[in-house]
Amino acid sequence: MSDCKDLLGALAEYLDGNEQAEMCTELRRHMATCEKCRVVVDSSRRTIELFRDEELVAEVPVDARDRLHLNLKNAWKLCRGESTGT
């Protein structure tokens, strides 16, 4: 990877965790000297990390959660004909 043109192909492999693949080794070597590619790779990786962060997942809206539990309780009674406790 003498220049940046192979970056995107290698980036896909790199972000998918195939870091041992030969092209990724080359990508790492290339990043050591190319600041722009390093920035693209780093910000792409951090983009995925943010979306995976459970703390950053939207909470269920309170009204939707209340309706969910009420409907499940009613459906349970209908389907199973058994007590739902409280």
Partner: peptide
Amino acid sequence: AGLGGLASAAEVP
């Protein structure tokens, strides 16, 4: 940064 042609090189293996 000398990346002309990047788009055509962007096919994912």
